[in-house]
Amino acid sequence: MPMWKKIQILSLFVFSALSCLPEPKPSLLGVLVLPLVTQTSSTFTIESTTPSDGATGVSLNPTITIIMTQAIDTTSLNTNISCSPTCPSLSGGSSNRTITLTPASALTAGTTYTITLNQNLQSIFGLTLGTNTSFSFTTL
């Protein structure tokens, strides 16, 4: 039998065998865990804030939003956020990676406020900030 004929038969055999392989199906592990893993980072830090650091002309009744690189352990939230000069009582909480804070009453006009996240704020993966992290904004 000529060599080209052997190669042709071998190629036909390989391609027909490949077409018999089952199609991969998504696993429950990939559906549930993969989105969680891909939305986190290997570090726990502030990703963004609203108002942004250094913002001016901020409303006297702002909603302060802090987005972290990992989901937040809500039990570490209450004692690890401060505002100076003293803000009216901040209420709010967190959902996944987002901390939302709202002052109980209007902030003072023309004042620069600094929000500080304490180094002990923790992600659901057990990572902490490791250092106090702050951002500031100035009201109207």
Rank of each mutant, 00 (worst) to 15 (best):
Met1Tyr: 08
Met1Cys: 07
Met1Ile: 08
Leu12Ala: 15
Leu12Lys: 15
Phe13Glu: 14
Val14Ser: 13
Ser19Asn: 15
Cys20Glu: 12
Val31Ala: 11
Leu32Gly: 03
Leu32Glu: 15
Val33Phe: 13
Pro35Met: 08
Val37Trp: 11
Val37Met: 08
Thr43Ile: 09
Ile46Pro: 12
Ile46Leu: 09
Thr49Met: 04
Ala55Val: 01
Thr56Arg: 00
Gly57Glu: 04
Val58Ala: 05
Ser59Thr: 03
Pro62Thr: 06
Pro62Ala: 10
Ile64Leu: 06
Ile64Thr: 05
Ile64Ala: 01
Ile67Gly: 05
Met68Thr: 02
Met68Arg: 01
Thr69Tyr: 01
Thr69His: 00
Gln70His: 10
Ala71Trp: 10
Ser76Asn: 03
Asn78Glu: 13
Asn80Val: 14
Ile81Val: 10
Ser82Pro: 07
Thr86Glu: 12
Pro88Met: 00
Ser89Cys: 12
Ser91Gln: 12
Ser94Gly: 14
Ser95Pro: 03
Asn96Ile: 15
Arg97Gly: 05
Thr98Tyr: 02
Ile99Gln: 00
Ile99Glu: 11
Thr102Trp: 11
Ser105Tyr: 09
Ala106Glu: 13
Thr108Gln: 09
Thr108Ser: 13
Ala109Gln: 11
Ala109Ile: 12
Gly110Asp: 08
Thr111Met: 06
Thr112Gly: 10
Thr112Glu: 13
Tyr113Val: 05
Asn118Phe: 04
Asn118Arg: 05
Asn120Tyr: 10
Phe125Tyr: 15
Gly126Asp: 04
Gly126Met: 01
Leu127Ala: 09
Leu129Lys: 06
Thr131Glu: 11
Asn132His: 04
Ser136Leu: 01
Thr139Phe: 02
Leu140Met: 09
Leu140Pro: 14
Leu140Tyr: 07
Leu140Glu: 11
